[in-house]
């Protein structure tokens, strides 16, 4: 923050770096055991799947075994050596980036619209009365129901996917932002008014920071929905990305690519959620301390 100067600022930086290093060291300590615990279940499942599949009876031989999935994934990622007619060869990164870019655009669009709208709904009675009923009316319509609308309006293009992602992520962010602004401690607002803050200042310097924990809850739910939305959109409304490959591979009977694709989506979702979590821990450092002390 740009508020303090001189010795205060440097002390502040050192406290931030102390906090960062304490987070890192506690992460390192817990890391090994947590990783070991975390991988037990997946390893067991994959081992059983491999063992069962080797007998050739897995779902009537429909599902490829993990080693075949792994091989397909490698070819998809790095291409096959020698002559290959495999249409997926070496296209993994490109498709991953297509999807990630759409999620990024749609998610950012959702944040930019949903956070201000949500705060306004939670903070202002007129905004709440005029916006909230419409939001609640549209919210039950699943994003899949918006597919024909999206294709009709945007065609088979990126914008359709971005629209669906933004729409899907919009609702949880708007609802949680509104909740955060609604639940704000009354005396914090009174204190700000008493110190001469106007409505905009209160919104920016009190309501927004007080709502951030709630907003981040909305962001994490919204990001999950964004990944759902991108896959749905790509299966129908565009011709690239992980969702497109997923459906395409299914049509040509490449279940190994289908499963590799699913795993890729899972990993990307997990990683992007962790990124949000890290940002949250950084932005809400004051809250972390709060939960340590209470």
């Amino acid at each position: 923050m740009s508020i303090s100067t001189g010795p205060i600022a440097s002390r502040q930086e050192s406290s931030v770096s102390r906090l960062a290093s304490s987070i890192l060291s506690s992460v390192a300590r817990r890391n090994l055991r947590q990783i070991l615990l975390a991988i037990v279940l997946p390893v067991v499942v994959i081992a059983l799947w491999q063992w069962e599949g080797n007998g050739g009876s897995l779902f009537g031989g429909v599902l490829p075994t993990p080693d075949r999935v792994w091989h397909a994934w490698k070819v998809w990622a790095f291409g096959a050596s020698g002559l290959s007619l495999n249409p997926y060869s070496g296209t993994w990164l490109a498709n991953l980036l297509f999807s990630a870019e759409r999620v990024g655009k749609g998610f950012l669009l959702a944040i930019v619209v949903a956070v201000p709208v949500g705060l306004a709904i939670g903070w202002n009675r007129i905004a709440s009365g005029s916006l909230d009923p419409t939001v609640q009316l549209l919210r039950p319509i699943p994003i899949t129901a918006w597919l024909p609308f999206s294709i009709a309006v945007f065609g088979i293009r990126d914008m359709g996917a971005v629209f669906l992602i933004a729409l899907g992520a919009f609702y949880p962010i708007v609802v949680n932002s509104a909740q955060g602004a609604r639940d704000i401690e009354r005396n914090l607002v009174r204190a700000a008014m008493m110190m001469g803050a106007g409505r905009w200042t209160i919104l920016r310097r009190v309501v927004l920071p007080a709502s951030l924990p709630s907003i981040f809850t909305g962001l994490r739910i919204g990001l999950g929905i964004a990944w759902t939305a991108v896959i749905v959109a790509e299966m129908v409304a565009v011709k690239s990305g992980l969702g497109y490959v997923l459906w395409d591979a299914y049509y040509v009977g490449r279940m190994d690519v289908v499963i590799a694709d699913m795993a890729t989506i899972g990993l990307l979702g997990l990683i992007s959620d962790r990124v949000i979590l890290l940002i949250e821990q950084w932005v809400l450092a004051w809250r972390r301390l709060q939960s340590f002390h209470s």
Partner: peptide, 26 residues
């Protein structure tokens, strides 16, 4: 100037930032 029972400080601001909040917003 109101002093509240539970202080009602802004938990995301440090002591210095809380103290200068009034003059700053004015």
């Amino acid at each position: 100037g109101v002093v509240f029972q539970e202080a009602a400080l802004f938990p995301w601001l440090n002591v210095w930032q809380n103290v200068i909040f009034g003059p700053q917003v004015q």
